[in-house]
Design a protein around this nucleic acid. Structure first.
Lengths: 335, 335
DNA sequence: GCCGCCGATGTAAACGATTACATCATTCCG
DNA sequence: CGGAATGATGTAATCGTTTACATCGGCGGC
């Protein structure tokens, strides 16, 4: 492997000069700069990242910790993070599937000296608790972790409001028998959406029926299974609100397979408004969240904290969640 | 920031001993090991990644270069890569959106000293040429780049076979007027799929109609637009084969909105078999590719090359692409 | 009782860059 | 013409680890 020394020797200058050329310092004569550049290109030299980080204490990398890497939601978040980070010359070090706090801690440790800051997505409540006690060695932004402490940086979605608006909308369409397909137990977003659902029902004076609070796991398969369960049960709701779009899509498919028409026989709605939602048949009524903006905002906040830790003021930002009415709720005839 | 020296001082041993404890060397007495462990935990010590990489020449990280990060296809590939890499204790450094060769080269350079190897996805033909001339400084595996040189490591999809099988299937169903919605110009996968389409038509003695070779860009929007175009044109095909599922889904939606029934009025099929395909209405007939396996195979190959560069033998692997018949092609009644 | 060996530990030299400081040649001004 | 200021370059310390080599004590075999 060719190093800065090789370039220096070949160009007949000291390593300091080569370094100055490659870090873009002004203090090099035009002639020397050109010569060093040439030699560098000819030899195929590239500065060694680790060596550079060691002395500068900067890695130009941000770490991303995710619970999983599955589905359109996460890919959109990462896209938002990546775009923003790249614009500022940062790379992304991703690490996923940290179900257990221990695994997460290990991942966090292993990031030391490899990243300048972290974006941590830990929707699990138990995990979040643990995280608070963890001595973070670098700037960090939490995503959807339900933390409400202005001492930390975090971005959240207006889960409650979104769910409330959705259920309210269904009620206004005349639905009284509204089921909710929830997310994984312990998941913060899921809990908040459920809370919004209950509040909306209560607000309309509808008694909640525990049998209509189904448990899911955010996957299409869970939606499909829930639809089958509802089809088999004696009393069927007139509307199903799924805690995310993937489950709504699965449910759509399940109901159809069971011979039900959506929205005529049953309304189905989701949450997140993933890109594909509008292409469903019927197009899916959902709660729009600008998912990639979620990643973008988190990244901006993090970059701010990295750039000037003292000036940076921490806080929790909430992203709006707005109702998007399409055909699957029955508000629009056909399409 | 606390370093190995702090731990050494606090534990009353030399840095060498601390290092030995944290690298898992045998040569430490049980008593000392325990003491160092304790002190380390108490002080919240974590080895500095960059410093470690510098001396060991290992980063335990693999770099991933992608053209973009959009949609389920990429997210599945990354998932495959991540799972395999993590199982071997590797992290992922991702970098996306390298449309131009220059940007790609820059990204590649900036990875030196930060990764042990790279997985490069560059479906663009021009890019691939350039890449060949680039002196790669680390093991690399190419993904879907259409390279057919046993001197490099690469994984490809059986694009031609898959497309051929799909079109053949449509012909067997009685279709003669089959349109193809292609992918981006210059994209290798797209070109191969187009080739398969043409070959199948030719094999059945059907004259190709250039007007029915539409250009797309792999997005849902492109599929939607193509459907609109076909609806407006005088002669309409009886089947549309889209070069990927996203476009097929967009087309499905477009045709429906134009009042056409799928598959009764027009058959629609895709390629990739992304997870959501089976939940469409009608469920999408597609060409199944084990996308996450694509990432997994690439990673295994790369890890092999990293582990033992001498023993490793390079080569191109092709992943099968098999027809999955669902309802959107009309082969099955209803769903 | 001496020697050699072995296991546990320490010392110090890398790794490849950046950068404060020193050096040297020029230029400019009084 | 002397000396300060300026600009280009070099020297060497430094970042936090790992690891080859040295050291040292204790133990077993002769």
């Amino acid at each position: 492997m060719i190093t800065i020394k090789d370039v220096a020797r070949e160009a007949g200058v000291s390593v300091a000069t080569v370094s100055r050329v490659f870090t873009g310092s002004e203090l090099v004569s035009e002639r020397t700069r050109a010569r060093v550049r040439d030699v560098g290109a000819r030899l195929g030299y590239a500065p060694h990242g680790a060596a550079r980080s060691l002395i500068t204490n900067r890695t130009n990398t941000i770490g991303v910790l995710l619970p999983d890497l599955y589905g359109e939601f996460f890919s959109e978040v990462i896209r938002g993070i990546d775009q923003t980070a790249r614009a500022d010359g940062y790379h992304l070090l991703v690490s996923s599937a940290h179900e257990e706090p221990a695994a997460m801690e290990a991942a966090l440790r292993s990031m030391r000296g490899r990243v300048d800051g972290m974006i941590i997505m830990s929707p699990d409540a138990a995990l979040r608790e643990r995280l608070g006690t963890l001595p973070l060695r670098f700037p960090a932004v939490l995503l959807n972790s339900g933390i409400d402490d202005s001492g930390v940086d975090a971005i959240t979605i207006a889960n409650f409001d979104g769910a409330y608006a959705m259920v309210r909308h269904l009620i206004e369409l005349g639905h009284r028998r509204i089921a909710m397909l929830g997310g994984s137990a312990g998941n913060f977003d899921a809990a908040e959406r459920l809370r919004g659902y209950r509040a909306a029902l209560a607000g309309a004076g509808i008694a909640p029926d525990p049998a209509w609070e189904l448990e899911g796991d955010f996957s299409e398969a869970a939606g499909f299974a829930a639809a089958e369960r509802l089809l088999a049960s004696a009393s069927r709701p007139s509307a199903l609100f799924a805690a995310n779009d993937s489950m709504a899509i699965g449910a759509l498919s399940g109901f159809r397979q069971g011979g039900l028409r959506v929205p005529e026989d049953i309304a189905v709605t989701g949450f997140d408004d993933i890109p594909i939602a509008r292409y469903m048949d019927p197009p899916l009524t959902s709660v729009h969240v600008d998912i990639s903006a979620l990643g973008e905002r988190a990244t901006r906040r993090l970059l701010g904290a990295i750039g000037d830790p003292d000036a940076h003021l921490r806080g929790v930002e909430e992203l709006p969640a707005t109702l998007v009415v399409r055909a699957s709720c029955g508000a629009r005839r056909g399409r």
